[in-house]
Amino acid sequence: MSKIPVLIDTDGQMDSLWGMILAKHFLDVKAVTVCAGKNDNPEHSFDNAAGFAAMAGLDCTISAGSRRTVLSKRKPPQKKFLPDGKCGLKLPSPGRAYEELPAWDRIYEEAKAAQGELVLLCFGPMTNLAITIFKYPEVCQMIKKVAFVGGSYDYGDASAVVEVNMATDPEAARAVFQSGIRMEMYGYNAELKSAFTNAETGRIVDGANGPYTTAFAMSGMSHKPDEPIYYGPALAVMGLSMPENMTFERHNIFIETKSDICRGRVVPLTMYTPLGYAKDTKVAMDLDKEAYISLLKETLASYEAID
């Protein structure tokens, strides 16, 4: 079966590497676009993303996108993957330099070229996608769906009920959700179910000390002892390419942007959803954890074998 054509949009945090590594094997990656997103220093996002793409062996264009969020509001502080967003890892030189075309133009061009088949795989805040929609409203009819990491069906990590990608750029998320594009959500609720124990990370790494397994172990070690270790981008790639390993529900989702304590909250509406709104968001709820562990273990091992 042919692989699903995807464009990866990332903010260059370490978990994107694990998404890219799985995507290289199980999806047809057409391009990578980058936004500043959650990193405190935007330059880390762009440097890291190029290095991650090279490490994953992605041979595609890479385009820089927004260095800001849609509104210039304060975003949550960076909490993960050490201050550089890459766990102090030394990354290989980028295989390709950033192209001149900005992210939103690249997204539009790839959507056009894929003739309705392109899936946008968004690992960070949806700033670049929102700007694409603002510039090219017709792109909404040209994209098959947006599979994104973020939001939560229940509780949050940035605040009580808000997940950090949504908290970083809620207006962008709202623009994408309102666009009519079909959405597929890999949120904090599912990420927590995919969280690895130290022993599970050990099983995936399997005692090896090659560059990929070492990086995976470092990725886990960058977490505080009581902090759950999960990699939403990897989960999203598994869900997209092997949906049989996950369970999903369909919901109407609205994005709260006006509340002071719920800004960025994903609100699944039920009985009181205004008529005319379809249940157009597929929400990841649970996963086959053993299948996920095996997938990562085998994929990392295959990278080590190549090297």
Partner: peptide, 17 residues
């Protein structure tokens, strides 16, 4: 003051805040 969340009880299950 939320548009979709006004009147909701925001419970901090994990004690994030």
């Amino acid at each position: 003051n939320g548009e979709f969340t006004m009147g909701s009880t925001v419970g901090d299950y994990y004690g994030v805040e």
